[in-house]
């Protein structure tokens, strides 16, 4: 049951991720990206990581993608402005060859790797639960956690500084 669910979710994820790139309409791309985040949250739930699943939806689908959609609606990009960007035959060739090379390198890289399975003796299903996660974050990984929060604070202050009104500028 879980295995078929995994393959269903994985194929849905890949399909939606592809549609993000293929869609002509940027709003459709954003919507497919949102579905992709949902399927990834589904993977987290399969791994019994409820907290990550919920946070993934709140942060990515609920906040960041709303901002994406917001900006794209403002830019008013539609099919007409998209088709004006012409791709020459040369760039298509270059793109195909570069993509093919990347694919070969990936095959070569994957060939020799061994994928670490889980050890049934040491495996705990509670790893993804919010209590365990919190305990680990605030003991073992306290320093990186605090440093990351400082980084976010700096980014926030920077964003506020950039968006600040210049002296004499009037918005309303």
């Amino acid at each position: 049951m879980t295995e078929s669910l995994f393959y269903f979710l994985a194929s849905l994820t890949l399909l939606c991720a592809l549609m993000v790139v293929i869609s002509r309409n940027p709003v459709h791309s954003v919507l497919f990206l949102i579905i992709t985040f949902f399927t990834i949250s589904g993977h987290y739930i399969l791994l019994n990581a409820q907290f990550l699943a919920a946070v993934n939806i709140i942060v990515y689908a609920g906040a960041i993608m709303v901002l994406f959609l917001f900006v794209i609606m403002f830019l008013n990009m539609n099919k007409d402005s998209e088709s004006r960007v012409k791709t020459s035959t040369l760039s298509k060739f270059a793109g195909t060859i570069a993509g093919g090379l990347l694919f070969v390198i990936m095959v070569a890289a994957v060939k020799d790797t061994t994928i670490a399975g889980y050890n049934a003796d040491t495996f705990t299903s509670q790893t993804g639960m919010v209590e365990t996660l919190g305990a680990v974050l605030f003991t073992q990984y306290l320093l990186p956690f605090e440093l990351a929060s400082v980084l976010f604070l700096v980014a926030m202050v920077g964003a506020v500084m950039l968006g600040k009104k210049e002296a004499g500028e009037q918005h309303f």
């Binding site: 609920g62 709303v66 609606m73």
Partner: peptide, 19 residues
Amino acid sequence: NIGMLYIFGVVSLGVYGLM
């Protein structure tokens, strides 16, 4: 055990219908 986050996530999705 993440009920509150569930509600918060679903509420944050509500704006998509409007947008």
